[in-house]
């Protein structure tokens, strides 16, 4: 049985600047990282491997250099990786992305039954949180979002019970397998790779599936398959903050000042 972890390679957004003329992200010279939310999805899949013996396959759609990110997944303990890369997949919005990922999972499921698909809650570059639900919809899987704990999984009864963290409460939800589970950052603390695994990952084979392999209708993927278009990217105006009690050394005084101001602004009710 498989746990499929979906990971995305993203530019390190703290280092990204917006081109003021074109309104697009300047990606040159910006290092790529594994989407921080996805590290929690990968970690959760590895924990399911430890708990239930699932086989972990990490998949990612992206340009050929995404291989680096998948090797990191291997170093952490993924059993297999699939890179979905083709020029026609490029420029995809969340709909077109979920089309490709869903098809890849379908193909994996033909070889070995899929129990769960794990996604991060969102990405730090797109921030839409739509790809996970999109995959679930395309595949007809149970859709469990905002999960901060997988309580229990019963592989024979094909049931999973998770805790969802909502704004004001948590809820325990049971759902039939297979399921797409989108985890929050609180779900776990990702592990650190061991050196022997890193070395093994360095020359492991990363399976590549392009569209010759996938045979998806080109109208449904990439830029052509996207129903949304980016018109402009800009940094929102942010009101400048103020420094309270600069130079105060007494922590009690400082706390009092802060709490007073929070109450004044109606941000805190005592």
């Amino acid at each position: 049985m498989l746990a499929v972890a979906c990971v995305k390679q993203v530019p390190d957004t703290t280092q990204v600047k917006v081109d003021p003329v074109t309104g697009t992200l300047i990606r040159e010279g910006v290092p790529f990282i594994i989407n921080p939310f996805d590290t929690h999805a990968l970690e959760e899949s590895l924990r399911l491997k430890d708990r239930y013996g699932l086989r972990v396959v990490a998949i990612s759609m992206g340009p050929p250099n995404t291989e680096v990110t998948l090797r990191k997944a291997l170093a952490l303990g993924a059993d297999d990786t699939v890179l979905l890369s083709d020029r026609v997949f490029g420029g995809a919005d969340t709909l077109a992305t979920s089309m490709v990922l869903a098809e890849a999972i379908r193909r994996l499921a033909r070889e070995e039954e899929v129990a769960v698909v794990l996604c991060g809650r969102q990405t730090i570059d797109g921030d839409t949180a739509q790809v996970g639900p999109g995959i679930a919809t395309r595949l007809g899987y149970s859709q469990l979002t905002l999960v901060d704990r997988i309580e229990e999984m019963d592989l024979s009864a094909k049931q999973v019970r998770v805790r969802r963290k909502l704004r004001t409460r948590s809820e325990i939800v049971a759902a039939p397998l297979p399921a797409m589970i989108a985890v929050t950052r609180e779900a776990n603390r990702p592990r650190y790779p061991r050196v022997p695994m890193r070395l093994a990952a360095e020359d492991a084979v990363v399976t590549l599936w392009d569209n010759q392999e996938m045979k998806l209708d080109e109208e449904t993927v990439g830029l052509k398959g996207s129903t949304t278009q980016v018109r402009r990217i800009f940094s929102p105006e942010r009101a400048k903050g103020e420094i309270l009690g600069d130079g105060l050394s007494n922590p009690e005084e400082a706390a009092q000042l802060l709490v007073g101001r929070l109450i004044e602004k109606g941000l805190l009710n005592l």
Partner: peptide
């Protein structure tokens, strides 16, 4: 290197150094 076992505050330190 062999166990990936260390005080938890180090993971952020290690990741910052790598990234």
């Amino acid at each position: 290197e062999m166990q990936a076992r260390f005080p938890e505050e180090l993971i952020t330190f290690f990741e910052h150094m790598e990234q």
